[in-house]
Design a protein around this nucleic acid. Sequence first.
DNA 1: CACCATTTGTTCGTATGTATG
DNA 2: GCATACATACGAACAAATGGT
Lengths: 86, 86
Amino acid sequence: MREIKIDPDSAVPVYRQLVDALRARIESGEIEPGRRMPSETDLEQATGLARGTIRKSVETLRAEGLIITVKGKGSFVAEHQDDATD
Amino acid sequence: MREIKIDPDSAVPVYRQLVDALRARIESGEIEPGRRMPSETDLEQATGLARGTIRKSVETLRAEGLIITVKGKGSFVAEHQDDATD
DNA sequence: CACCATTTGTTCGTATGTATG
DNA sequence: GCATACATACGAACAAATGGT
């Protein structure tokens, strides 16, 4: 896992910073639809954050519909349904 | 497996208590270098702890260099290299 | 060879306690 | 009180390596 820079002194909560970083990777296409996201353990190492915090970030992405999560397997970038109504 | 007493109400985390108990068995020579450690399942029964907790203890011993682990086989007391510089 | 039991490895789900701002 | 964040702990599903039948 590549390092993910988190600023613990920022006014932006660290879990939010991680949400933004992961969303950027998804929306840029760096992690393609159907591909697996880094595991929670990977993200712990990449960020230095606690697992509970990682999970809060991942849950946010899930709530946004950007990923789906399967127990025992991991989280995967949603195949979607781009939000564009166009 | 002989029972391993764990005090869930102790200020010492239960995974730490297990680390200490296992380290004592190794350092006393009760489990000799090269011999296999109790399996995770054995330790679950001997302690009543969850497997994740057992694994955390075992990982600590591994990090300390006291044991080596082989997937599908088990963990074995390291042949070492006593830390004594003597 | 196929099958199965044992064993460790990986991953997510949930809950509790503590501390800080 | 509430949100954030860390550590601990239990539970569950899935995966892979090993060894014996």
